[in-house]
Every structure is written in structure tokens, then in C-alpha cells.
């Protein structure tokens, strides 16, 4: 472990963090622009050309607002809640392979911060502790609506985590590894996992919507019933942290979906024409980000297309449809992998 290695990893961490923040910032702008487009409106267009400075104006507004902490709340936990939300949202980017390695002066630098051999479980663990930020914040506000929003959020996330985990198990069966870097590397050119695991991919995407609390699963913050959900009592930048965490989660979900099922940084047929390794890596990164941006757009597109579920419908979908479907997916995958052995039994 030389000094150069540590510096390179530090640079990578800072770059990934900065990109995550910028994308989350501009997701708020994109959300309103996409909403405007889908509803035949203009969207924000006052701050800067095409309203491009709108996120900056929003950030200034959130920082300048008066900060209120309810006197009946639990102050420490009230502050820890949003901080925890943002922290867990930022933690997943560590195991994502953002591209192949770049070779500079004969040294190769892989564009992945840490290739842990249990990367999938790491992502899953971070997702499962992401609930605490919402639960702690909702409870510490000492408000009925906040508590109800927090309880809704956590029960929804726990329910959909089960189906998500089961859909990932089928993916692990076909890839034979828990390392995210290896899964991305296996899908070279067009061998994307979505072609092998279409059902698992669909279940994973639906669960990702529920895990990020996005429409049509945004019951934790449904305004008509719960005022504002778990962040009713929050103001100024603490509120901003919760909103920011949601957008980061959306970005990370889009990244994980593209890495697991849509080939990650791999692009079909380009390797036949481009032979410069570094150029190929940079193209791969660009291609990954194109997939991610489409994923984020897909999240917003669905938000303005589907109405919100009722709570019992949400639970029925999670427990009675998605979990049996993902178990069926595991059985089918297993049967397909053992097809020669099964056929041998019947031929004899």
C-alpha cells in the first residue's frame, strides 16, 4: 500500500462524492423540467438560461431559511435523523464499478473504490440501514403525522427488501459471484443480465421504486393524508437533507440497476472499432452515465404516469405478488441451470 495508491483512492472517493452531489442537485431541476414537459408546461426557467441555476437558488433558499427544532422533540435524534439518511445514501457508491481501469505510465488504475468480494451484500446492508434515518427523524419529531409517515416508510422498505433480496439471489445463481465488479465484467459487449434474468430485473426495478419511496410508492410522504410524512416538522437544510437523500438514492438505484442488469460500463460492438484502452474506458464511463440518466428519467416518467397506490394494495403487491414471483424466478433459474441433469433423469 504505497502513498500513490492511497492518493489515487482518495481522489476517486472525492470524485465519486462530487459527482453524486452534482447529479442529485440537478435531479431536482430535471424532475421539475420533466414534470413540466409531461404536463405541457415550461418548468423552472427564471434563474439563469433555461432555469439552469435553479438548484443553486434552491440551495441558497434552504440554507437561509429559519431553522426550527420543536421544543417537544428529542433534539439529538432530531438532528441525527437527516444526517443518517444522507450518510447511508452516499455509502453505496463505494462498491460500484464506474468503468474499467485507466492505464497511466504503465500503472493501471481501476475505476472502482473497493472491489469487496461481498459487494452485493454490502449494498444490501446499506439499503437496510437506510431505514433508520427516516424512522429516527419521524419519531424524534414527536408528531403523530411524522410517526405515521416513518412507520409507513419502514414497513414498506422492510417488505420490499425481502422481494429485492430474493430477486438478487437468482442473479447470484447465474453469475456465481457476489462481487459487483465481477458481475459488471461478466456482461461484456451485449451479454447483459437482463436477457438472462428478465423477471428478476423487473422485480428488482419495482422494489427499487419502493425502496427509494418514489411514486407510485411514495406513501410515506403522501400529502393528503399525512401532511408531509416523516419530514413534517423539519425546516431549512435538515429538510433539504431528506430531499437530497431521496435524490441520491434515486441516482444510486439507477446505477445499481444498470450495473446489475444492463451491462454497467459495457457497450455492445464498440470494442470492435476502438482499440485504445483508455479511450474505451472513458467511453464505457460515458455509456454507464447515459444508462444512469435514462434510469433517472425513467423514475420521473413513472412518477407522472402512475397514480399512488393505496396502502393495502402496496402490501398485497409486495407480499402476495412480488415475493412468490421472485421465488418462482429462483426455482426457474435453478431448473434451467440443472436442465441437463433433470433431462438425464427423464431419459433414463
Amino acid at each position: 500500500m504505497t502513498l500513490g495508491y492511497i492518493i489515487y483512492k482518495l481522489i476517486l472517493v472525492v470524485v465519486v462524492f462530487a459527482i453524486t452531489m452534482v447529479i442529485a442537485m440537478y435531479s431536482t431541476y430535471a424532475e421539475r423540467k420533466v414534470a413540466g414537459f409531461l404536463q405541457d408546461r415550461l418548468g423552472p426557467n427564471r434563474a439563469g438560461p433555461f432555469g439552469i441555476l435553479q438548484p443553486v437558488a434552491d440551495a441558497v433558499k434552504l440554507f437561509m431559511k429559519e431553522e426550527t427544532i420543536p421544543s417537544v422533540s428529542n433534539k439529538t435524534l432530531f438532528i441525527i435523523g437527516p444526517a443518517l439518511s444522507l450518510l447511508t445514501a452516499c455509502m453505496t457508491g463505494v462498491v460500484i464499478p464506474w468503468g474499467k481501469s485507466i492505464t497511466i505510465f504503465g500503472e493501471s488504475y481501476p475505476l472502482q473504490i473497493a472491489d469487496v468480494n461481498i459487494g452485493i451484500l454490502y449494498i444490501f446492508g446499506v439499503v437496510s440501514i437506510g431505514i433508520y434515518g427516516i424512522m429516527i427523524g419521524g419519531w424524534a419529531s414527536n408528531n403523530k403525522y411524522s410517526l405515521l409517515g416513518a412507520v409507513r416508510a419502514s414497513s414498506q422498505m422492510i417488505s420490499y427488501e425481502v422481494a429485492m433480496g430474493l430477486s438478487i439471489i437468482a442473479l447470484i445463481m447465474t453469475t456465481g459471484t457476489l462481487s459487483v465488479g465481477e458481475i459488471a465484467a461478466q456482461q461484456n459487449s451485449w451479454h447483459w443480465n437482463v436477457l438472462i434474468q428478465p423477471l428478476g430485473c423487473l422485480i428488482f426495478i419495482v422494489c427499487a421504486f419502493a425502496e427509494t419511496n418514489r411514486a407510485p410508492f411514495d406513501l410515506p410522504e403522501c400529502e393528503q393524508e399525512l401532511v408531509g410524512g416523516y419530514h413534517t416538522e423539519y425546516s431549512s437544510m435538515k429538510m433539504g437533507f431528506y430531499l437530497f437523500a431521496e435524490y441520491i438514492n434515486m441516482f444510486i438505484s439507477a446505477t445499481v440497476i444498470s450495473t446489475f442488469y444492463f451491462g454497467g460500463y459495457n457497450m455492445p460492438f464498440v470494442a470492435d472499432y476502438v482499440h485504445n484502452e483508455n479511450l474505451l474506458t472513458l467511453l464505457g464511463v460515458a455509456f454507464l452515465f447515459a444508462k444512469i440518466f435514462f434510469g433517472i428519467f425513467f423514475f420521473m416518467w413513472v412518477r407522472w404516469t402512475l397514480p399512488r397506490f393505496r396502502y393495502d394494495q402496496l402490501m398485497n403487491l409486495g407480499w402476495k405478488v412480488l415475493i412468490p414471483l421472485s421465488i418462482l424466478n429462483i426455482v426457474l433459474t435453478g431448473a434451467w441451470m440443472m436442465r441437463h441433469e433433470i433431462l438425464n433423469v427423464f431419459i433414463k
Binding site: F124, S128, V151, S154, I158
Partner: peptide, 15 residues
């Protein structure tokens, strides 16, 4: 350990 205890069981406890 983190997924099962911290992520699932303790969330239900807290709940």
C-alpha cells in the same frame, strides 16, 4: 450480521 440484526430485527424492535 448487519443485514439481519441491524437491518431487519432491530428495525422491527424499534417499530
Amino acid at each position: 450480521h448487519v443485514i439481519v440484526y441491524a437491518g431487519a430485527i432491530m428495525v422491527l424492535f424499534l417499530f
